[in-house]
Amino acid sequence: EGLCAVCGDNAACQHYGVRTCEGCKGFFKRTVQKNAKYVCLANKNCPVDKRRRNRCQYCRFQKCLAVGMVKEVVRTD
């Protein structure tokens, strides 16, 4: 048992190249599959942790990419 590289929640295994929780795994997968574009309403440096991970989708997705999650391994079929 480890911690999610994105939000610090409990994470049992790796998803898309990085140890993440189920919440961040699902968020990343949905974002890539929908080709979603998010906008940060602040300064693009919002805190992303277990308690606040749902407040800014833009910053959460940027953190997913920054920690090494790989868009190309998300299935789109």
Rank of each mutant, 00 (worst) to 15 (best):
V74C: 08
G26I: 03
R53L: 07
C13L: 13
G17F: 02
L65N: 14
R19E: 13
E72W: 04
H15W: 12
L41Q: 04
H15L: 11
K34C: 10
D77C: 09
H15R: 06
V39H: 01
K71A: 12
Q62L: 06
R19A: 12
E1D: 05
K50M: 06
R53V: 12
C7Y: 02
K37E: 05
C21G: 02
M69N: 07
F28L: 06
F28E: 00
V39Q: 04
Y16I: 02
P47L: 11
A42K: 15
Y16L: 08
V67T: 09
R55A: 06
V39P: 14
Q57K: 05
C59V: 00
A36G: 08
D9A: 15
C46W: 00
C46A: 00
N35V: 02
N43M: 06
V18S: 07
F28I: 04
V18F: 07
Y16F: 12
T20G: 03
A66Y: 01
E72Q: 14
D49W: 05
K44P: 02
R30E: 07
K63S: 03
R51F: 13
K25D: 11
K63N: 02
R19W: 09
L41V: 12
G2F: 03
V74G: 11
Q14G: 11
F61S: 04
C24R: 00
G2E: 15
R19C: 12
N54I: 14
V32E: 14
K63I: 01
A42M: 05
C46Q: 04
C64L: 03
C64I: 02
N54W: 11
K50F: 09
T76P: 11
G17R: 06
Y38P: 01
G26K: 03
V73S: 03
R53D: 06
R55S: 06
C21Y: 03
G26Y: 00
K34S: 09
A36K: 04
N35P: 08
R30S: 08
L3R: 15
C13F: 14
C59W: 00
V67Y: 15
C13I: 04
N35A: 12
Q14V: 14
R51M: 12
Y16A: 13
V70M: 09
Y58F: 13
G68R: 03
F28H: 07
N35Y: 06
L65K: 15
K50T: 14
R75L: 12
K44Y: 09
K71W: 05
R51V: 10
V32I: 04
R19M: 06
K25E: 13
A36C: 11
C59I: 00
R52M: 11
R52A: 12
G68S: 04
V70G: 11
N35T: 06
L65A: 06
E22T: 04
E22V: 05
G17K: 03
G8M: 11
Q57W: 04
Q62Y: 01
V67M: 10
Q14D: 05
A42W: 03
C4R: 02
C46L: 01
R52T: 15
A42E: 15
F61G: 00
T76S: 11
A36W: 09
M69D: 01
F27Y: 00
R19Q: 09
V73E: 09
L65E: 10
G26N: 03
Q57P: 14
L65M: 04
N35I: 07
G17Q: 13
R55M: 08
G68K: 01
K44Q: 15
R51I: 03
M69W: 04
F61T: 03
C13H: 14
V39M: 10
R53G: 13
E72I: 06
C13Q: 15
Y58A: 12
K50W: 10
F27E: 00
V67L: 09
G8D: 02
V73H: 12
E22N: 15
C46I: 01
Y16K: 05
K29Q: 08
K29V: 10
G26P: 01
L65G: 04
T76I: 11
Y16C: 14
E22I: 03
C21Q: 12
D49G: 09
R53I: 10
C21A: 01
R60D: 03
K71Y: 14
G17I: 13
R19S: 12
N43P: 05
A42R: 04
N54Q: 10
V18D: 08
K63M: 10
K63L: 03
R55W: 10
K37G: 09
T76Q: 06
E72T: 13
K37C: 06
V48R: 02
V73A: 04
G17W: 03
A36T: 14
E72N: 12
Q57E: 08
T20S: 14
C21R: 00
Q62F: 03
N54P: 03
C64W: 00
Q57S: 13
G2S: 09
F27V: 00
F27R: 00
V70D: 07
K44F: 01
G17P: 00
G23S: 15
Q14P: 11
R51K: 05
K25A: 14
C13S: 13
V67F: 02
R75S: 13
G8S: 15
Q14A: 15
K50D: 05
R51A: 06
A42C: 02
C64Q: 01
K50L: 06
K44E: 03
V32H: 05
C59F: 00
L65T: 01
M69L: 09
D49E: 12
F28N: 01
K29A: 12
K29T: 09
F27Q: 00
M69Y: 15
A66E: 09
R55D: 09
D77F: 04
E22K: 09
C59T: 02
K29S: 14
K44A: 04
C46V: 00
R51C: 05
L65V: 08
K37Y: 12
K44H: 07
F27D: 02
Y16W: 03
Q33K: 10
C40W: 01
G26E: 05
C64R: 01
L41E: 13
R75I: 11
E22C: 07
F28C: 02
Y16G: 11
Q62R: 04
K29M: 15
D77Y: 01
F61R: 00
E22P: 11
M69Q: 01
N10I: 06
V73G: 10
K25P: 01
D77W: 05
V74D: 14
Q57V: 07
Q57A: 13
A42V: 08
R60S: 10
A66I: 08
K44G: 09
R19P: 12
K25T: 07
Q14L: 15
R30M: 06
R30A: 08
R51G: 11
K50R: 05
N35D: 14
K63D: 02
G26A: 09
K50H: 07
R55G: 10
A66N: 14
Y16S: 08
C13T: 12
R52G: 13
R55P: 14
K50I: 02
R51T: 14
R30I: 06
V48L: 06
F28A: 08
A66G: 11
D77V: 07
A5P: 11
C64S: 03
V67W: 01
R51P: 01
F61Y: 11
G23C: 13
G23W: 10
N43D: 03
Q14N: 08
R75Y: 07
N45D: 11
H15N: 11
G26F: 13
R53W: 09
K37A: 05
C13V: 13
K25S: 10
T76N: 15
R52D: 11
K50E: 14
P47A: 10
K25L: 13
Q57F: 05
K37M: 14
L41A: 10
H15C: 08
K29P: 07
N43S: 07
G17D: 02
E72P: 14
A66C: 05
Q14S: 14
P47D: 14
R30T: 10
C46Y: 00
K71P: 14
R75Q: 13
F61W: 09
K25V: 13
A5R: 10
G68Y: 07
E72M: 08
K63T: 12
C21F: 00
C40S: 02
L65I: 04
R75N: 11
K50Y: 12
C21W: 00
R60W: 12
L41H: 09
R30C: 08
N35S: 05
K34H: 15
C13G: 13
G68E: 01
K50C: 07
K29H: 13
K44M: 12
R52C: 09
Q62G: 04
L41W: 01
K34W: 05
V67K: 13
V74E: 13
E22G: 06
G68F: 02
T20A: 02
K25M: 13
G26C: 06
C4S: 03
C56E: 00
K34L: 03
H15F: 15
E22H: 11
R55Y: 12
H15T: 12
G68C: 02
D49T: 12
A66M: 10
K63C: 03
R19T: 10
R52S: 03
A36Q: 08
K71G: 08
R60I: 03
R52F: 08
F27T: 00
R52Y: 15
A36M: 08
R53M: 04
Q57L: 10
D49L: 05
N43A: 15
V74R: 07
T76D: 14
Q14M: 14
R52K: 12
Q14F: 15
K37L: 07
K50V: 11
N35W: 02
Y38R: 01
C64F: 00
T76G: 13
Y58D: 07
F28P: 00
K25N: 12
D77L: 08
R60V: 12
N54V: 08
R30D: 10
G8L: 15
V74A: 08
E72G: 09
Y58G: 04
K50Q: 15
C46F: 00
R55I: 01
D9W: 09
A42I: 05
Y38H: 14
Y16V: 05
V39K: 15
D49V: 03
K25R: 13
K71V: 07
L41G: 07
L3V: 09
E72Y: 01
V74I: 13
Y16H: 15
F27A: 00
R75A: 11
R30G: 04
N35R: 06
G8E: 15
G23A: 06
C40I: 03
N43F: 13
P47S: 09
C13W: 13
Y58H: 15
L65Y: 03
V48M: 10
K29I: 15
A66L: 11
Q57M: 15
V70Y: 01
N45S: 03
C59L: 00
F61M: 13
V70L: 10
Q33L: 10
K37P: 11
G26D: 09
V39G: 01
A66T: 05
F61E: 03
L41D: 15
C59Y: 01
C7W: 01
N43E: 05
R30V: 05
K34V: 10
G68M: 08
Y58W: 09
V48C: 06
E72R: 11
R55E: 10
K29R: 07
C56A: 00
V67E: 11
N35Q: 08
K37S: 05
N43H: 15
G68T: 02
H15Q: 03
G26L: 06
V32L: 02
F27K: 01
V48I: 04
P47G: 08
G17C: 15
N54F: 06
R55K: 15
N54L: 07
E22Y: 13
M69T: 01
L65S: 03
D9G: 13
P47C: 05
A36P: 08
